[in-house]
Amino acid sequence: MIRFELNGHIVETDDAPDTPLLWVVRDTFKLKGSKYGCGAGLCGACTMHLDGQAVRTCVLPVSAVAGKTITTIEGLGTPEAPHPLQAVWAEQGVPQCGYCQSGQIMSAAALLESNPAPSDEQVEQAMAGNICRCGCYPRIKQAILTAAAELAVEVTA
Protein backbone atom coordinates (compact mmCIF):
# COMPACT_ATOMS: atom_id res chain seq x y z
CA MET A 1 0.00 0.00 0.00
CA ILE A 2 1.25 3.45 -0.89
CA ARG A 3 -0.27 6.32 1.02
CA PHE A 4 -0.16 10.01 0.07
CA GLU A 5 -2.21 13.18 0.26
CA LEU A 6 -4.31 13.94 -2.83
CA ASN A 7 -6.08 17.31 -2.96
CA GLY A 8 -6.32 17.44 0.82
CA HIS A 9 -7.39 13.82 1.37
CA ILE A 10 -5.21 10.96 2.55
CA VAL A 11 -5.44 8.18 -0.03
CA GLU A 12 -4.02 4.67 -0.35
CA THR A 13 -3.39 2.54 -3.38
CA ASP A 14 -2.21 -0.99 -4.04
CA ASP A 15 -1.23 -0.15 -7.61
CA ALA A 16 2.22 -1.47 -8.53
CA PRO A 17 4.88 0.90 -7.12
CA ASP A 18 6.28 1.62 -10.60
CA THR A 19 2.89 2.79 -11.91
CA PRO A 20 3.20 6.42 -12.99
CA LEU A 21 1.29 8.74 -10.65
CA LEU A 22 -0.78 10.00 -13.61
CA TRP A 23 -2.44 6.62 -14.08
CA VAL A 24 -3.02 6.12 -10.39
CA VAL A 25 -4.79 9.46 -10.22
CA ARG A 26 -6.79 8.88 -13.40
CA ASP A 27 -7.65 5.17 -13.22
CA THR A 28 -7.67 4.46 -9.48
CA PHE A 29 -8.84 7.77 -8.03
CA LYS A 30 -10.86 8.73 -11.12
CA LEU A 31 -9.67 12.32 -11.32
CA LYS A 32 -9.59 12.92 -15.08
CA GLY A 33 -8.48 16.54 -15.25
CA SER A 34 -4.78 15.67 -15.57
CA LYS A 35 -4.03 14.42 -19.06
CA TYR A 36 -1.81 11.93 -20.81
CA GLY A 37 0.08 13.49 -23.72
CA CYS A 38 3.41 11.79 -24.29
CA GLY A 39 4.32 9.37 -21.48
CA ALA A 40 7.87 10.70 -21.55
CA GLY A 41 7.84 13.96 -19.62
CA LEU A 42 8.05 15.95 -22.86
CA CYS A 43 4.72 17.79 -23.09
CA GLY A 44 3.55 18.70 -19.58
CA ALA A 45 -0.12 17.68 -20.04
CA CYS A 46 0.15 15.52 -16.88
CA THR A 47 1.58 18.25 -14.63
CA MET A 48 0.59 18.14 -10.94
CA HIS A 49 2.13 19.64 -7.81
CA LEU A 50 4.30 17.48 -5.57
CA ASP A 51 4.73 19.35 -2.30
CA GLY A 52 4.06 22.51 -4.30
CA GLN A 53 6.51 21.83 -7.14
CA ALA A 54 5.31 21.21 -10.71
CA VAL A 55 6.16 17.64 -11.74
CA ARG A 56 5.54 15.49 -14.83
CA THR A 57 3.49 12.63 -13.45
CA CYS A 58 3.52 10.42 -16.55
CA VAL A 59 7.10 9.45 -15.61
CA LEU A 60 6.85 9.71 -11.81
CA PRO A 61 6.37 6.33 -10.11
CA VAL A 62 3.69 6.42 -7.45
CA SER A 63 6.20 4.97 -4.98
CA ALA A 64 8.03 8.31 -5.14
CA VAL A 65 5.07 10.21 -3.67
CA ALA A 66 4.55 8.06 -0.58
CA GLY A 67 3.94 10.38 2.35
CA LYS A 68 3.92 13.44 0.13
CA THR A 69 1.29 15.96 -0.93
CA ILE A 70 -0.16 15.95 -4.43
CA THR A 71 -2.39 18.64 -5.91
CA THR A 72 -4.15 18.23 -9.25
CA ILE A 73 -6.13 20.71 -11.33
CA GLU A 74 -9.24 19.61 -9.41
CA GLY A 75 -7.53 20.58 -6.16
CA LEU A 76 -6.44 23.96 -7.49
CA GLY A 77 -9.95 25.28 -8.07
CA THR A 78 -13.41 24.42 -9.37
CA PRO A 79 -15.82 26.06 -11.81
CA GLU A 80 -17.68 27.44 -8.78
CA ALA A 81 -14.53 28.59 -6.96
CA PRO A 82 -11.77 28.91 -9.54
CA HIS A 83 -8.14 29.69 -8.71
CA PRO A 84 -7.26 33.21 -9.93
CA LEU A 85 -5.33 31.69 -12.85
CA GLN A 86 -8.36 29.62 -13.86
CA ALA A 87 -10.58 32.69 -13.65
CA VAL A 88 -8.26 34.75 -15.85
CA TRP A 89 -7.90 31.79 -18.25
CA ALA A 90 -11.68 31.77 -18.72
CA GLU A 91 -12.03 35.56 -18.94
CA GLN A 92 -9.34 35.83 -21.60
CA GLY A 93 -10.59 32.87 -23.62
CA VAL A 94 -7.26 31.08 -23.38
CA PRO A 95 -8.16 27.45 -24.20
CA GLN A 96 -8.89 26.11 -27.65
CA CYS A 97 -9.21 22.32 -27.58
CA GLY A 98 -8.37 22.62 -23.88
CA TYR A 99 -6.63 19.28 -23.49
CA CYS A 100 -3.26 20.67 -22.37
CA GLN A 101 -4.68 23.43 -20.20
CA SER A 102 -4.73 21.57 -16.89
CA GLY A 103 -1.01 21.03 -17.23
CA GLN A 104 -0.42 24.59 -18.38
CA ILE A 105 -2.31 26.00 -15.40
CA MET A 106 -0.52 23.71 -12.92
CA SER A 107 2.85 24.83 -14.29
CA ALA A 108 1.74 28.46 -14.15
CA ALA A 109 0.46 28.11 -10.58
CA ALA A 110 3.77 26.63 -9.43
CA LEU A 111 5.62 29.46 -11.18
CA LEU A 112 3.58 32.16 -9.43
CA GLU A 113 4.07 30.45 -6.07
CA SER A 114 7.83 30.67 -6.43
CA ASN A 115 7.96 33.90 -8.43
CA PRO A 116 4.89 36.11 -7.96
CA ALA A 117 6.07 38.74 -10.45
CA PRO A 118 7.73 36.92 -13.35
CA SER A 119 9.13 38.73 -16.37
CA ASP A 120 8.09 37.75 -19.92
CA GLU A 121 11.26 35.70 -20.26
CA GLN A 122 10.76 33.98 -16.92
CA VAL A 123 7.22 32.99 -17.97
CA GLU A 124 8.53 31.64 -21.27
CA GLN A 125 11.24 29.62 -19.56
CA ALA A 126 8.93 28.23 -16.90
CA MET A 127 6.30 27.27 -19.46
CA ALA A 128 8.62 25.88 -22.16
CA GLY A 129 7.96 22.34 -20.92
CA ASN A 130 4.24 22.53 -21.69
CA ILE A 131 3.20 21.96 -25.30
CA CYS A 132 -0.02 23.43 -26.68
CA ARG A 133 -0.73 22.02 -30.14
CA CYS A 134 -3.50 24.59 -30.69
CA GLY A 135 -0.91 27.33 -30.16
CA CYS A 136 -2.54 29.26 -27.33
CA TYR A 137 0.88 30.48 -26.19
CA PRO A 138 0.30 34.25 -26.56
CA ARG A 139 -2.84 33.98 -24.45
CA ILE A 140 -1.31 31.65 -21.87
CA LYS A 141 1.53 34.09 -21.39
CA GLN A 142 -0.80 37.09 -21.15
CA ALA A 143 -3.08 35.26 -18.70
CA ILE A 144 -0.16 34.46 -16.39
CA LEU A 145 1.02 38.07 -16.45
CA THR A 146 -2.53 39.31 -15.80
CA ALA A 147 -3.07 36.88 -12.92
CA ALA A 148 0.30 37.84 -11.42
CA ALA A 149 -0.68 41.53 -11.55
CA GLU A 150 -4.10 40.82 -10.00
CA LEU A 151 -2.57 38.71 -7.23
CA ALA A 152 -0.03 41.45 -6.53
CA VAL A 153 -2.87 43.94 -6.08
CA GLU A 154 -4.62 41.54 -3.70
CA VAL A 155 -1.48 41.12 -1.64
CA THR A 156 -0.88 44.86 -1.27
CA ALA A 157 -4.57 45.68 -0.72
Binding site: G33, E74, T78, W89, E91, V94, P95, C97, G98, S102
Partner: peptide
Amino acid sequence: DALAKSTGTA
Protein backbone atom coordinates in the same frame (compact mmCIF):
# COMPACT_ATOMS: atom_id res chain seq x y z
CA ASP B 1 -16.24 26.33 -22.89
CA ALA B 2 -13.29 28.25 -21.43
CA LEU B 3 -14.07 27.73 -17.73
CA ALA B 4 -14.71 23.99 -18.10
CA LYS B 5 -11.45 23.69 -20.02
CA SER B 6 -9.59 25.67 -17.36
CA THR B 7 -10.78 23.57 -14.43
CA GLY B 8 -10.22 20.08 -15.80
CA THR B 9 -13.96 19.46 -15.99
CA ALA B 10 -14.45 19.35 -19.78
